[in-house]
């Protein structure tokens, strides 16, 4: 554990020196403050903010984590030359990336919301947005690690990360839409729910939409979704899905890291 802590502290210091995290936090701060200021109040700014979060958080988490793993390859090799366990090393590196990214998100999006009064007036939705954002951060950090450890070439690794992001954020939904048309004759509520659960970006989006945009969701289909995602069980399940998206790629990345021949 001591090793993990040391690596974690080094990683945080290294990140603090680079401007990526600070720039990310500043961007979120500006975007949130701008949306609150020009969007006409928290009720209208929050859905837009949710869209930004769902797009930007995965992208930044993926790119920052992959590039830092590539960037730190020499450092990893150096450490591995010493009697250091690979698991603590991985834990330190992972937390050293995921926690600062999550902190940047919480501070960047949270400060304008707290100052602008949205935290007070829409506490539930803001909390949900926060938890979803943090879990998206950890999920895509895991994916970033997995990509960077699996693909040796940095350029193709970053390219793959971008494709992964585009696929999760946009193309996947296109597939779902096509599927919905293809099987339009069948009751699709449950398959749709499952397909949403299989994509972390969709899980986060649907969670926030259910909390913010409820009125359109009250038709028959909407009611099915609302029953599922609107209740405590659904929220817990959705968060569990996001948690699984953190855990499974994270474990796969650790498995790769432990066996990898650097």
């Amino acid at each position: 554990m001591n090793t993990a802590l040391k690596v974690f502290r080094y990683q945080v210091r290294d990140l603090a020196r680079s401007r990526a995290i600070a720039g990310y936090a500043a961007f979120l701060l500006l975007a949130t403050a701008g949306l609150l200021h020009f969007g006409g109040g928290p009720a209208r700014a929050l859905p837009s903010l949710a869209t930004v979060v769902v797009l930007v958080v995965p992208l930044v988490s993926l790119l920052v984590s992959t590039s830092f793993v590539y960037h730190g390859n020499d450092f990893i090799e150096l450490l591995l030359a010493h009697p250091v366990g690979r698991r603590p090393l991985f834990a330190g590196m992972y937390l050293g990336l995921a926690l600062p990214l999550a902190a940047a998100f919480v501070l960047g999006a949270g400060i304008p919301l707290a100052v602008g009064g949205a935290l007070a007036s829409h506490a539930g939705a803001v909390a949900l947005l926060g938890v979803a954002g943090v879990l998206l951060t950890t999920a895509f950090t895991s994916l970033g690690f997995l990509v960077a450890l699996r693909v040796r070439e940095a350029a193709s690794g970053l390219g793959l990360a971008l494709v992964l992001w585009l696929g999760r954020a946009v193309i996947y939904d296109g597939g779902v839409l096509l599927g919905a048309y293809g099987w339009a004759a069948y009751p699709l509520e449950v398959p749709m729910l499952v397909s949403m659960a299989l994509n972390p970006v969709d899980v986060a989006r649907v969670l926030v939409v259910m909390a913010l945009d409820a009125s359109a969701m009250m038709g028959y289909t909407g009611a099915v979704f609302q029953d599922f995602f609107g209740g405590p069980v659904g929220v817990a399940l959705a968060l569990a899905c996001l948690g699984a998206w953190t855990l499974l790629p994270g474990l796969a990345a650790r498995y790769t890291f432990v066996r990898k021949d650097f």
Binding site: D173, G174, M192
Partner: peptide
Amino acid sequence: LVVAQNEPALVLQRSPLVAL
């Protein structure tokens, strides 16, 4: 229009794809 023809697609509300 999409939702009118295919109600389950409602779940894609606010998806970036839909915005595009």
